[in-house]
Design a protein around this nucleic acid. Sequence first.
DNA 1: AGCGATAATGCAATCGGTTGGATTGTCAAG
DNA 2: CTTGACAATCCAACCGATTGCATTATCGCT
Lengths: 351, 351
Amino acid sequence: MPPSSIDHNIDLPAAGRRPTMAEIARIAGVDTSTVSRALAGSPRVTKETRALIDKIVKETGYVVNETARHLRGGRANQILVIVSDIAAPFYSDVVQGIVETLAERGINVLLGVTLRQPKRETQLAKQLLTGVVDGIITVTGSIPKPILNMPGFERKVVAISRAVPHEGVTCVTIDNYSAAKQVMQHLRQMGHQHIVYIGGPSYSETYRDRSAAYADFMRENGLNDFTNMRSTDTFNNDAESGLEIMRSILNDGVCPTAVFCATDELAIGAMAAARQANKAIPDDMSFFGFDDLKLTPLMSPPLSTVAVPRFEMGHNGAEALFRQVYNDAPVSTKVVLEHRLVLRESVARIA
Amino acid sequence: MPPSSIDHNIDLPAAGRRPTMAEIARIAGVDTSTVSRALAGSPRVTKETRALIDKIVKETGYVVNETARHLRGGRANQILVIVSDIAAPFYSDVVQGIVETLAERGINVLLGVTLRQPKRETQLAKQLLTGVVDGIITVTGSIPKPILNMPGFERKVVAISRAVPHEGVTCVTIDNYSAAKQVMQHLRQMGHQHIVYIGGPSYSETYRDRSAAYADFMRENGLNDFTNMRSTDTFNNDAESGLEIMRSILNDGVCPTAVFCATDELAIGAMAAARQANKAIPDDMSFFGFDDLKLTPLMSPPLSTVAVPRFEMGHNGAEALFRQVYNDAPVSTKVVLEHRLVLRESVARIA
DNA sequence: AGCGATAATGCAATCGGTTGGATTGTCAAG
DNA sequence: CTTGACAATCCAACCGATTGCATTATCGCT
């Protein structure tokens, strides 16, 4: 029987409640299955029925209940991004890359912030276990324990920027060791020997790689006497810590000709400390950063640094997770993106 | 009949699939309703049954399916934050405040980025209509049209930083007009008369308020001849635009003694442009910013600016939305937080 | 006219919980 | 020994969509 053509204006759903598919069906005089198929664009529905349903949908302002769809379909079309601190420019850029990429694919992004508390990370992990999200992108360098017990968790997790100590988990990074080595080579070529290093927390492979490159280079070039590494283990990894660490370096009577900072944020703070101690940059002291944050070219002086493709990292990570979760493509365990040295005016050539 | 005490190890759920509540119930020899109540802490369950269920839950690693719970309960326990660009430090700070506040309350935060495209905003709005989220926090100064048709949408939306042109919608801001007026008074007290203003897009009330304060002040103090406002209508509101605008000002032969920038980011760019034109800051040219981004005290020279409580805005907005949506507390239509002038070294006193 | 093929739609199970009300069991009081 | 009260548990509907399969309608063909 064709759908009835009774006047369907007589019984609109109660105001204040959104109409359900059942109501659309009742008004149209068809079954919910027909409405469902009509809206899904199934060829099994006549033009007329489809038109009628479309009209009613428009009139009532019906929108599908995604929660019901998810329950039935088993997919949330949502993923979770875990960062330690979205207020840090590095992470917010990565997240921007992720969000843009997934928005195009109709995937929602849940934002989880750990503030470096393992407890929070564990809580966030539950979102995957409870089915709220279909996958996780972590930018913290670790995977919460509860997840490791999920069979096949590898294809539901992607790590960005920081490698993760688990076999088979896709990881999008750069070659931190090489990059740091190149920085050191550049500083040496510019005549610097007394180079100190301000690093990030050693529990992160990223920062271990960078500091290892520094230490190796100093050793390999017979500069052991100058080797001096300070880290932010007990600090946050931000400009404030850079300031404090640089102050302590100067207080210790150490006076390098160049300072290599493991992040631009640290460099910003370190340079401020140097200025406060009346050092001219770069004439008295040179600085090299890492990340190429957007504002580094506008600093005074513009900061030489390593360009890290943050948006691309986010983009690639999101793309990888999407394929693994929604297209069951094979996992690609390691993606290494290109970095690039950006030479500006914060490094002086010395005799 | 008490729950059976048969050995429940014999039939664990199939590996790879998470167990459902039905399976827990079957293993325990009780009904799902009992399991549900046991897990919810209902007093209608005996200690013994509860203990048995807890044990099985632990052994099987059962976790509730939130999607099913949401469907039944009608609540997603998720809200959506809409920003134009999470990579901008202002927004990422606000979002950090929001996320932290809601994490404590067990509410997830979905991150929506519009890139200033109205189409994206409309798409994002659907998340509310489809029931994916229970409410929206917008930091863009506008509410997507589809939402305006929802009866009672006012209590499901909160605007942060930028007011929204809709009666009854809670809005968390500062008094931009007063703040800008105070900045102008300060500059005048420091002897400045030739002050130009670099502003944000005029479609935002926030920036209209700041520029109005500038224009009013100049008029009220007989400085009309010096009045010169440039805006970023066609630019993004970032450091790059600050650079370009300042360049164009200098190219026009305009040479103010002080520049008031509507955001710190603009100021960073503008100062870079001034430096490139060999202006000494603040001796040749003074600068005043707006926002008090974290790195402003570390700039060279440290930037005088208006401290805007970004985290608190996020916090208050999140708190307000939470109460409106989940505690049906009355909506408070306007929350005005305190700002504060932070005087550093980017403004010189002149004759 | 009868029959099969095919197109359009309806039926009912399903996803995995929650919850109001019915049911069963236990114990004490009469 | 019956009855009532109360505690513990079960039953079944429900949330709102999707989908395999059954059913009905339509049309062409002989």
